[in-house]
Simulated scan of single mutants.
Amino acid sequence: MKTKAYYLIDYLNYTRGLHVQQRLVGCELLRDEPGHMMTLEAFNGESGFERRYTVQGDQQTHWKWPVIKSRAQLEYDAWLYAHFYRPLCISQLRKYLTKEKKHVMARVKPRVRVIKRYWTEAGVVQMTCLATGFYPRHINLTLLQDGQPVDKERVTGGELLPNPDGTYQMRKSVELSAEEQRERHTYTCTVTHLSLDNKLDINIEPGPDPVIVVPSVLLLLCVFGLLAAFIIWRRRISQPEQIIYVPATAADDQTTEQQM
């Protein structure tokens, strides 16, 4: 890799300094049968070499950079991949699958809900379909209009994001103008996942969610009633308590003397 890096610096007319060369090697195991194996290389973020081995062992190589190895070296590399690297990679995958089979083979169903946001001034409704809490990570989340997928140019989102508990989430959104809301289209959020026996379809109403409106007269009466009650309460607690003294009469004095 060091030799190739120095060669690519000169070939791509890079100046001396900090450069990054990357190599990714992987293989797959399908139902306990060896699958593909691949090697990808990039230099400063630009891919330039790709090699794949099919299930039958056929080699497919794509070169963007010039070949700097001889024919004998290339044949030796092919032999190493076929008889050493690929069997080693497959054996490591089998060990990992045996150790982590309970986690790797887990199936967790997605929780799907629809979120709608309404902008009053523009009259636009954004409809979002969110699927979260599912495992494994592969999922098919699609927004449909009249049973057909919505144009990709109109759909936003779609990135697969991890959750803190090891599951995943994905959301997709589409915006509808006021005119599109008046048209009689049906919108559906459809989800397929390994944990689901059948696909999950959720119908979406294109307009904004209904809002409960209190009649204005009743609302004003409630407000005035509360205001009046508040004013009366404030007056009662603001006025000091009054004590009335009544002067005693002569008759009262005589009555008191007779009692004594």
Score class of each variant (00 low, 15 high):
Arg31Pro: 03
His62Asn: 12
Glu121Asp: 12
Phe49Met: 06
Val67Trp: 02
Thr54Arg: 05
His138Ser: 14
Val108Ala: 06
Glu33Arg: 09
Pro149Ser: 06
Gln145Ala: 12
Asp77Trp: 06
Lys101Cys: 05
Tyr76Met: 10
Arg137Ser: 14
Lys101Leu: 09
Ala42Gly: 04
Glu153Ile: 12
Leu30Met: 11
Arg86Gln: 09
Thr128Arg: 06
Thr39Asp: 08
Tyr135Cys: 01
Val55Asp: 08
Lys101Phe: 13
Ala42Arg: 05
Glu75Leu: 13
Pro136Phe: 02
Glu46Ala: 10
Thr156Asp: 05
Arg71Trp: 14
Asn140Gly: 12
Thr39Phe: 00
Pro136Gln: 13
Phe84Lys: 14
Glu159Met: 11
Gln22Met: 10
Thr61Lys: 04
Tyr135Ile: 07
Glu75Phe: 01
Trp65Thr: 11
Leu24Glu: 15
Glu33Lys: 10
Met127Tyr: 00
Gln22Ser: 12
Arg71Leu: 12
His83Lys: 13
Gln126His: 06
Leu24Ile: 15
Asn140Thr: 15
Val67His: 09
Val108Trp: 00
Thr61Asn: 05
Pro110His: 01
Glu100His: 12
Arg71Ala: 05
Lys99Ile: 13
Glu41Met: 04
Asp146Cys: 07
Gln60Leu: 14
Gly158Pro: 03
Arg111Gln: 15
Val124Cys: 01
Asp146Met: 04
Ala72Gly: 07
Arg113Gly: 08
Lys95Trp: 06
Cys89His: 00
Trp63Phe: 13
Trp65Arg: 09
His62Lys: 14
Val108Ile: 15
Leu30Ser: 04
Gln56Val: 07
Trp79Thr: 11
Leu30Glu: 09
Cys129Tyr: 01
Arg52Trp: 07
His36Ile: 15
Phe134Tyr: 11
His36Leu: 12
Thr128Ser: 11
Trp119Ile: 10
Lys69Arg: 14
Met37Thr: 03
Ile90Glu: 03
Glu33Gln: 12
Cys129Thr: 06
Lys109Arg: 11
Leu24Ala: 13
Asn163Glu: 13
Leu141Phe: 05
Leu93Pro: 02
Met127Arg: 05
Arg117Leu: 13
Pro164Ser: 11
Arg51Asp: 00
Gln92Met: 10
Phe49Ala: 03
Gly147Lys: 08
Phe84Gly: 11
Val55Phe: 10
Glu153Leu: 12
Arg71Tyr: 09
Phe49Arg: 08
Thr54Val: 01
Ile90Gln: 03
Ala42Leu: 03
Gly26Glu: 10
Arg154Tyr: 07
Pro34His: 00
Ala72Leu: 14
Leu93Ser: 09
Arg117Cys: 05
Tyr135Lys: 10
Glu121Pro: 00
Val155Gly: 05
Gln148Gly: 04
Leu93Val: 06
His103Asp: 14
Gly57Asn: 01
Leu93Asn: 05
Arg113Asn: 14
Gln56Leu: 13
His103Met: 14
Ala106Met: 08
Arg86Trp: 07
Arg111Cys: 14
